[in-house]
Simulated assay, not measured.
Amino acid sequence: MDQLKLAALDQEDLAVLSAHVQDAVISVSDIRFLPREQTAIFVMNRFVWDGKKDRRTGHYERRRAALSVRRAHSLRALGVDPRAKGQVLELLAVTFEPKDEPTGELRLTFAGGGMLALDVECIEVQLADLGAAWGTKNLPSHDLG
């Protein structure tokens, strides 16, 4: 499969991008907020939902990817300890809550109730795979009860 590169400039684009990063795992040590550049970067291992299970090995795919958010003025952690560098977070969704459009809050919501919230000037998000895929036998699942 080719490497994925997506950009989101509105909520519809963001919903597509969010689907591609659902169940990505992110180490707290791989989160960067660069206030001078008004940029936040999240390096993750994303699950390739649009990939197929390899019949020979029984493996699914994960890929190293970077999610970047531009025009970000602040980053707040709710239920996530930024000092716990070894903590691994499972991303559920990336959403946008408008305030005075086009400004708003971009939210990364994690399993277990954690969230990162960015105050943004507008939606300007990019996702890019960083390298080759590797196999995993673990198919993400969620308790919906």
Rank of each mutant, 00 (worst) to 15 (best):
R32N: 11
E61N: 08
A132D: 15
K52G: 15
V125C: 01
L75D: 00
G104P: 03
R32T: 11
E105S: 13
F110E: 02
R56N: 13
E101I: 10
K52N: 15
G104R: 05
V69N: 00
R83C: 09
T95W: 02
V69M: 02
R62V: 07
D129N: 01
P98V: 00
H20R: 11
F96L: 05
F42K: 01
A84W: 08
S74Y: 08
A24L: 03
A66H: 04
Q87Y: 09
V25M: 08
A84D: 14
L92K: 10
I123C: 00
A77D: 05
H73F: 15
R46W: 01
G58Y: 02
E37Q: 13
A65G: 03
D119H: 09
L34P: 04
R64S: 11
A40R: 05
M115F: 01
I31V: 09
Q38W: 06
P102A: 01
D100N: 13
A117S: 10
V94N: 02
V69W: 06
E101A: 14
N45E: 14
L78Y: 10
T57C: 04
T39S: 10
V120W: 00
V120N: 00
D119N: 09
L34H: 09
A128W: 07
A84I: 05
L78R: 10
V69D: 04
I41A: 14
L116Y: 03
R55F: 15
F96N: 01
L106I: 04
S27A: 14
A72K: 04
L89F: 06
R70T: 10
Q87S: 15
I26E: 00
R56Q: 13
S27M: 12
H59M: 09
S29N: 12
N45T: 13
W49L: 12
D119F: 07
D81E: 08
A24W: 05
A117E: 09
E124C: 07
V120P: 03
G58S: 04
E90T: 15
L67M: 09
V25W: 07
E105N: 13
G113E: 02
L127E: 00
E61L: 12
T109C: 08
D23T: 08
A93D: 11
L108A: 03
T95C: 05
L92E: 12
Q38L: 08
S68F: 00
V88W: 06
F110R: 02
V28G: 05
D50P: 07
I123H: 05
L118H: 04
V88Y: 04
A84Y: 08
L75C: 08
A133N: 01
R83D: 15
F96D: 00
D30Y: 07
D129R: 01
L118K: 03
S29K: 13
G86A: 13
A19Q: 10
F42P: 02
D23V: 05
E90R: 13
R55Q: 14
R64M: 09
L75G: 04
T57N: 03
W49R: 10
D54C: 07
T109H: 09
G131S: 05
Y60L: 08
E101F: 11
T57W: 06
P98W: 00
L75Y: 02
L89K: 02
A133Q: 06
T57L: 04
P102S: 01
G51N: 10
N45S: 14
Q126F: 11
H20F: 09
V43I: 14
Q38M: 11
T95A: 06
L118C: 07
R70V: 07
T39K: 14
